[in-house]
């Protein structure tokens, strides 16, 4: 089983695809769940406190706005953990949406900088392209180590 980072990081379709092929999707939903179920932190709605933008300094300079760094505090550790990644370019909002363009630029850059298998695909705009899109993702996921061949 490989840890596969997905972009858009909240895409349910991508997350589901990764799981179907026996891998562990690294998606922002799990991080959000972790945040909102943390007992003792009271900073609704996401339980993000001024500490998160500080933690985001690992990924972006202090001059980068707090909102980008706060998001990076969630996304950054997922990238650190990633053993593979799928990036879908120019996806529609319904497929998955990251609200901040600056965070998106930095996220994709940090993923691309990692020495891991990466699949970058365009979001399809026809049924035919849609099928090809799923095949390519499936082939990529099949090529990743699963089960016994990973630690």
């Amino acid at each position: 089983m490989s840890k596969v980072f997905i972009y858009p990081t909240n895409s349910l379709i991508l997350s589901d695809l990764v799981e179907r092929f026996g891998h562990n999707p690294l998606a922002i939903m799990s991080k959000i769940r972790e945040k909102i179920t943390t007992i003792g932190v009271d900073s609704p709605p996401l339980n993000i406190t001024p500490k998160e933008p500080e933690m985001g300094l690992k990924y972006a300079a202090v001059e980068v706005p707090a909102g980008v760094r706060g998001r990076m505090a969630l996304v950054g550790p997922l990238i650190d953990d990633a053993e593979a990644a799928i990036i879908v370019r120019d996806a529609t909002i319904a497929f998955g949406c990251m609200g901040c363009a600056r965070t998106n630029e930095l996220t994709k850059f940090l993923v691309r900088k990692k020495d891991i298998p990466i699949l970058e695909v365009e979001y399809p705009d026809s049924d035919e392209d849609g099928q090809e899109f799923v095949y390519r993702i499936a082939d990529f996921l099949k090529s990743l180590p699963t089960g016994a061949d990973t630690q």
């Binding site: 972006a60 300079a61 001059e63 980068v64 980008v68 600056r102 630029e105």
Partner: peptide, 13 residues
């Protein structure tokens, strides 16, 4: 430029 978020990201990298 100071205070440009996109530029701050690019500058560092």
């Amino acid at each position: 430029c100071f205070r440009c978020a996109e530029a701050a990201i690019v500058r560092n990298e």
